[in-house]
Write a protein that binds this DNA or RNA. Structure first.
Lengths: 233, 233
DNA sequence: ACCTGAACACCGTTCAAGT
DNA sequence: ACCTGAACACCGTTCAAGT
């Protein structure tokens, strides 16, 4: 009964042989479905129909697996266009990174935790950063200003500077829900802002705040600020 | 033997009675020393000389404990000055938040993970955000622009927009160290930048990149950009 | 009524015993 | 030589048994 899957072929190999790539993409799929907390060596192995120890032939340990997953994500970011100005190229690429991130909401947390620990980013990430720097340089930025620019862009380079709070659906149940009138009394400014935003978009069904255009607003404010400094620093 | 610590006093109570505050500050101290991964209910209990289950009288579960720890950190941010303009007030407060964060390097990861999950931020965080919004409003910002501003500031409000990579000391050992000449060949732009930064600060002993001034550069670029829009939006 | 030890259902990773 | 089951040292949390 247990042997059913392997006894058919002459070579007696599992249907699709395990590979680093297959381990990584399975892990990404698992995280997409269940979040970062659903990622365990044991569960990945189970999803692949394999004993947990089999994974250790393809990744040294869990941290290396997480690094590999980040590489998979960076690979999903569109390559730079080479037929337009620096600003458009950077803008498109960052927005592509953001789209990637929306497909993998667990990524910021994992990237955050891994960037704290690693000695050097993986070659894939280095290549990506190098390419970004190259775009600024080709656009006429001094190396000093490029350095500032990379810091200013910060995590936006990888598609996020985290929204302080995710949208309201899909949350843990809230223990201490507060009455709206008490909310308004205690946090008057927050309430004013929430009402203004809601009123602004009364036609839209959603959360009352368009994260995408807010992201673009921040991105453009930053890019415009950098452009103003180009040549001056 | 086991009874030694409790049999002395008449009331037979542990030396310092457990309290939510003591649980939280102990957890913060533990994380400061060992990072986010060192934070376990069992270890916190051990540090308090208590059985793990005793913690559950003061926090509902680990997530609520993490939220409580974030509240402790927000409490460390200096209150706003009220004798100066909006820009100085925001700037000082954000820099105070950043100093808090430098004392607690595990915080961004924890904040990131908790903000993904919670329904509503804790009252302490809400109060902090409300106060920030109030400063912008008092500075003559329209509610629409304040909304944009809060998004633009993003995680910088809590003292971080994460440095993509931490400084080089205190890292995991690096498996695949690369030869400098191969580094230069593969990542020319990255190398140019690294060299320029190193040369820039040859007098300084440290990592060759002043994170503090880079943070301030990004902060000021953002604040200046917002000021330019004040009144226009 | 209160407290808590043991237990449950998990982890990542090691390692020796099996083929 | 290769593979892997069992084991180790952990988790967060439940719950019944003890006082």
């Amino acid at each position: 009964m247990v042997e059913i899957t392997t006894q058919v072929g002459a070579a007696a190999q599992p249907r699709a042989p395990l590979s680093r790539q297959r381990v990584l993409t399975t892990a990404v799929t698992l995280a997409d479905a269940g979040g970062a907390e659903a990622l365990s060596m044991r569960r990945i192995a189970q999803a692949l129909g394999v004993v947990p120890m089999a994974l250790y032939k393809h990744v040294a340990n869990k941290n290396e697996l997480l690094d590999g997953m980040i590489d998979v994500l960076v690979g999903e970011i569109d390559p730079p266009a080479d037929d337009t100005d620096w600003k458009t190229t950077i803008r498109r690429r960052v927005l592509s990174a953001r789209r990637m991130l929306l497909r993998h909401p667990w990524a910021p947390e994992v990237i955050e935790s891994r960037m704290k620990a690693r000695t050097t980013p993986t070659p894939v990430v280095l290549e990506y950063l190098d390419s970004m720097i190259g775009i600024f340089r080709a656009g006429g930025f001094s190396i000093e200003l490029v350095h500032h620019a990379m810091h200013v862009m910060g995590s936006r380079l990888l598609g996020f500077s985290q929204e302080l709070f995710e949208d309201s659906s899909d949350r843990e149940p809230d223990a201490d829900t507060i009455a709206p009138e008490e909310m308004a009394a205690r946090y008057p400014h927050l309430t004013e802002l929430a009402m203004a935003v809601a009123h602004d978009q009364e036609s839209v069904v959603g959360s009352g705040c368009d994260d995408q255009s807010e992201f673009e607003f921040a991105l453009d404010l930053t890019l415009d600020g950098l452009e103003r400094l180009r040549g001056a620093i």
